[in-house]
Design a protein around this nucleic acid. Structure first.
Length: 157
DNA sequence: GCCAACGTTGGC
DNA sequence: GCCAACGTTGGC
């Protein structure tokens, strides 16, 4: 079992949107970075646990928890000329981009802010903090423990 | 909206 | 295969 962090702009797709998908989850299309793709394609496994991160928004940080629901499959958007994720170099025989389905687990009462992560000595090695533009990054067990503890122990308003 | 970081593209 | 130009991401 592995731990991961995935980023999403909540204006486009938030933790609430993921919750609304229910048990079917959401196909995570549009990943167009090779390193992120390789994590998702080769290294994830069904059942892996995921931190859901909100980027490019008012409350930047970890918004809740998700999980890997499916095996990897070719991202259909790469074949669709109408899609912003269309890739003319991808073919059905040799797809370039893959996706998996992610499912909702829970939402934190409050986002655990990026600034909080940055302030924790034990989180300094997080790949998120070192490779800030990568949309999918692995998370170490100790990092998972710290962040979920922060998220789950918050008081609701 | 600005701008730094950084991944990708393409000419040579 | 190098590297400059370019485009995108994402925090602030």
């Amino acid at each position: 079992m592995n731990y991961w962090l995935i980023k999403s702009e909540p204006d486009a797709f938030s933790i609430d949107d993921l919750a609304a998908r229910g048990a079917a989850g959401e196909p995570w299309d549009g990943v167009r970075n090779y390193q992120a793709r390789n994590f998702m394609w080769h290294d994830m496994q069904i059942g892996d646990q995921v931190l859901f991160y909100h980027s490019s928004c008012k409350d930047v940080g970890v918004a809740g928890l998700a999980e890997v629901l499916s095996d990897a499959m070719p991202d259909p958007a790469q074949f669709d000329p109408e899609s912003r994720y269309f890739d003319p170099k991808a073919t059905a025989e040799k797809p370039r981009w893959y996706l998996r389905r992610f499912g909702f687990v829970r939402k934190f009462a409050h986002v655990v802010p990026l600034a909080t992560l940055r302030a924790y000595p034990d989180l300094q090695q997080m790949m998120l903090l070192q490779r800030s533009r990568l949309s999918i990054t692995p998370v170490r067990p100790e990092e998972w423990r710290i962040i979920t503890e922060l998220g789950l122990n918050q008081r609701p308003d």
